[in-house]
């Protein structure tokens, strides 16, 4: 079983469209949507949820007004500026749920024992059936943190399912950027496919994200999406990639049909067998070959 993670650094380069298209070509596979704070894969695959779980990645402070003596110590020690007092201290302090990291420092120092750390409801995660195979996905509550922990949960369940049902591939749809959820998606996977686009920002972000996969020693390949938007920069990205030892497994043209497929809730290759679909298939074939070669 091979775990292949699709990432990009820069957002909006086509990760989700490609992940879904690859999954349709992969035969038996498990999908894992690890873009947990803006998950979109379900819009294409319309999963039938078969299991649903609550996710709590951490705690959150709660101040009990009836015990509070308004001493202000909690506010003083909080490193996250999460305790809010009105200027005149007339009303009781409150905790800003977005700022609180649930570290518990305030509860430890509170002389009135008025603060309790309660598990925060950070989101939900699901195991579902789709027409392309099982899918593990999640929904971080908007504005919540702990996305890395949720990604780890999603990935570990996807691995378990793949081991049980003998899937050859796990396809992970990653999130943009290179912080906590991306690190949790990439570390320990078998291959990272970086989807980039021929723009100055695409190139810049490719170099940063490939440095990250190198840091975690994950074999990495590059896919240049919408490559004909600026062929000169596409060539330059190809040259830069090869110089870094990253193979360019595919160049995929810009085609409005990709957006049409999204509107029809289909993968690109379900929706069309045109040139763009062929180029996606070529990229996927190369990814398979590279993974077989490393067994």
């Amino acid at each position: 079983m091979k775990e292949i993670v699709v990432i990009s650094g820069k957002g909006g380069t086509g990760k989700t469209s490609l992940t879904a298209a690859f999954a349709g070509l992969a035969g038996k596979c498990v999908l894992a949507d690890c873009d947990v704070d803006a998950a979109d894969l379900h819009l294409l695959l319309q999963p039938q949820v078969r299991e649903r779980y609550e996710f709590s990645g951490g705690g959150r402070a709660e101040i009990k007004a009836e015990k509070c003596s308004k001493c202000g110590l909690c506010r003083q020690i909080c490193r996250f500026d999460a305790v809010r007092y009105s200027a005149d201290k007339k009303s009781f302090p409150t905790v800003d749920p977005l700022a609180c990291e649930g570290c518990g420092f305030c509860a430890i120092v509170c002389p009135a024992d008025a603060i309790e750390i309660r598990p925060a409801a950070n989101g939900e995660w699901y195991v579902s059936d789709t027409r392309l195979g099982s899918m593990v996905h999640a929904c971080l509550r908007p504005g919540e943190g702990n996305s890395g922990k949720l990604v780890a949960l999603v990935r570990s369940r996807a691995r378990k399912i793949a081991a049980e049902d003998g899937s050859a591939y796990i396809l992970i749809d990653g999130s943009p950027g290179l912080g906590c959820p991306v690190i949790a998606s990439v570390a320990g996977s078998d291959m990272a496919v970086i989807v980039t686009e021929p723009t100055i920002s695409g190139e810049h972000d490719l170099l940063r994200i490939s440095a990250l996969t190198k840091h975690f020693r994950v074999p990495t390949v590059v896919c240049i999406n919408r490559s004909d938007i600026n062929p000169a920069i596409a060539d330059r990205i190809a040259a830069v990639s090869e110089a870094q030892g990253l193979e360019v497994v595919g160049r995929i043209r810009y085609d409005k049909i990709v957006t049409e497929a999204q509107m029809a809730a289909k993968t690109v290759n379900e929706y069309t067998d045109g040139l763009v679909a062929e180029e996606i298939m070529t990229a996927w074939r190369r990814i398979i070959t590279l993974n077989k070669g490393r067994e």
Binding site: G11, D37, A99, L140, G143, G145
Partner: peptide, 14 residues
């Protein structure tokens, strides 16, 4: 701001 709806984005906009 960074993309997404989790802590980095919220830190930038709040």
């Amino acid at each position: 701001a960074p993309p997404g709806t989790s802590c980095p984005a919220m830190t930038a906009v709040s």
